[in-house]
Amino acid sequence: MKRRDFLVAAGATTLIPFAVQAAGVPYTEGLVQERLAAGETVFLDFKASWCTTCRAQERVINSIKADNSAYEDAITFIDVDWDEFGRSQLVNDLNIPRRSTLVVLKGEAELGRIVAGTRPADIQELMDVALNAATA
């Protein structure tokens, strides 16, 4: 094996745990309703792979999760691919204006949302709203 190939492979295996943690559950039709009906607190991340704002939000979310495992333990994070579901019934029902929108739901209620915001304090506050609802 060439040294370069080894270094690339070693680097990739080092990042795999972070990649797994980074992702929420991929959205499929009916998933949100199913999880809400089960009593879960849902954190929706409407994003596109090409969106720089979405990537900035994801970095903040992952950093906050890394600092406190309670978020991952108590909240259901669902990633909604904007390219696939941007015109879906879910987007219409929740009146989602664009990708890079973060929404927290519990039961029949929307507890908060951020549209195109990347400030860590704002995202932390939204995640805290979700955590408080999930652990109440």
Rank of each mutant, 00 (worst) to 15 (best):
M1T: 07
D5F: 10
D5P: 02
D5Q: 11
F6K: 12
A9D: 13
A10Q: 07
T13F: 14
T13K: 15
T13W: 15
L15N: 04
P17M: 06
V20A: 11
Q21Y: 04
A22F: 06
A23L: 13
G24D: 12
V25N: 07
V25H: 09
E29D: 15
G30E: 10
V32T: 09
Q33F: 00
R35Y: 04
R35T: 05
A38Q: 14
A38N: 12
T41V: 13
V42Q: 13
A48W: 08
T52E: 12
T53C: 00
R55Q: 15
A56W: 03
Q57G: 09
E58T: 13
R59A: 14
V60Y: 01
I61C: 09
K65V: 04
K65R: 15
A66H: 07
N68M: 07
S69R: 07
A70D: 13
E72S: 12
E72C: 01
I75Q: 03
I75L: 06
T76W: 04
I78A: 11
D79L: 08
D79F: 11
V80M: 02
W82E: 06
D83Q: 09
D83W: 06
D83N: 11
S88V: 03
S88H: 10
Q89E: 12
Q89D: 13
L90R: 05
L90M: 04
L90K: 06
L90D: 09
V91A: 12
N92T: 15
L94K: 10
I96G: 04
S100Y: 01
S100Q: 01
T101P: 04
T101N: 04
V104N: 05
L105W: 08
K106H: 14
K106R: 10
G107T: 01
E108P: 03
A109Q: 14
A109Y: 05
E110N: 07
L111F: 11
I114Q: 14
V115A: 08
A116M: 04
T118L: 00
T118W: 02
T118P: 03
P120L: 00
D122R: 02
I123L: 12
I123C: 08
L126C: 13
L126P: 08
L126N: 08
M127D: 02
D128V: 02
D128G: 00
D128Y: 05
D128T: 04
A130F: 09
L131I: 01
A133P: 06
A134M: 01
T135N: 10
T135A: 12
A136M: 11
